[in-house]
Amino acid sequence: MNLSLLSPFFLAGVPGLEDVHGWIALPVSFMYFVSLLSNFCVLFVIKTEPSLHQPMYLFLSMLLLADLVQSNSTVPKMLLIFWFNNREISYEGCLVQMFFVHSFAIMSSSVLLAMAFDRYVAVCHPLRYVTILTTPLIMKIGVLVVMRGTVLVFPYPFLVKRLPFCQSHIIEETYCEHMAVAKLSCADVRINVLYGLIAVLSVGVDCLFIAVSYTLIVRAVLRLPSREARYKVGNTCVSHVTVILVSYIPALFSFLSQRFGIQMVLSTQIIVANLYLVFPPMLNPIIYGISTKEIHNNVIKFISMLIR
């Protein structure tokens, strides 16, 4: 019998900075509150405004929903650690959290790829945009996004569940990251490492296709006759490129720090690696709210109605 099944794990939070956990909680709480407010606001506006029922905004809704689920699966527990020193998480709870964190991270990456495809069609094949990105196709893409994230990450909990944990149950993280948990085992974890790399490579494929899409987009923009047209078309892609950078850079750092041990103070490594849990959910709706006129105007209208 695996005794680890009976033993909870303990999340260390940010080791070395226990005395200032309360201060760390302040910006995290603020960002979490802003992310909840901004995401729900933008999602509500997209749902209730018929003019926003377009492929670009439907894909944005998928991204915001994935961000919300990922954030809500980690940040509340993170705040319990920082505010109340509540570090314990049940074995089963840890596996569930692990599944949600990683599966919705892959779903977010899949949606970013779908959004890149949307921008490619809009810029490179504008006359065929409506006939290519039909509602049935968008629904199929949404189903594929969910299936891909679920199928790729489904083995994670089972790969961890087979491992014995003979000694430490202290996870030096703020959440149950797959490799951070697996490294606590007293058994061989090479299968976990290899499968983790396969799952991450799928995100690398997304990045490759996104890069190809934007290479074609840039070529198409440069061929436009007028400077004003180039600016107008290019401006429609700025928000998406910014969201890509906000989403991928912290996630890439988290992956590299867990697998290859980037030389850095542990507390700094954990803080930076966890940015992708709080930054993208907070910044994505703000980026689109500021840079997209349709969303910006409707959000302002919605807030004005609430104030009245």
Rank of each mutant, 00 (worst) to 15 (best):
E177Y: 15
H178R: 14
M179F: 05
V181N: 10
A182L: 07
K183T: 11
S185F: 14
D188V: 06
R190I: 12
N192D: 14
V193N: 06
G196K: 03
L197S: 03
A199M: 10
V200P: 07
V200N: 10
S202V: 07
L208M: 03
I210N: 08
V212Q: 04
I217G: 01
A220G: 13
R223V: 08
R223G: 02
P225Q: 10
S226M: 07
S226H: 00
R227M: 14
R230A: 12
R230Y: 10
R230T: 10
K232Y: 15
V233Q: 13
G234Y: 12
T236G: 07
C237P: 02
V238R: 14
V238D: 14
H240S: 12
T242H: 12
I244D: 09
L245Q: 05
S247I: 08
S247C: 12
I249N: 06
P250Y: 01
L252F: 12
F253K: 00
L256M: 06
L256Y: 05
F260E: 09
G261L: 15
G261C: 13
I262K: 14
M264W: 07
S267H: 01
T268R: 13
Q269I: 02
Q269D: 13
Q269W: 06
I270P: 05
I271E: 03
A273H: 07
N274H: 05
L275A: 04
P281F: 13
M282D: 04
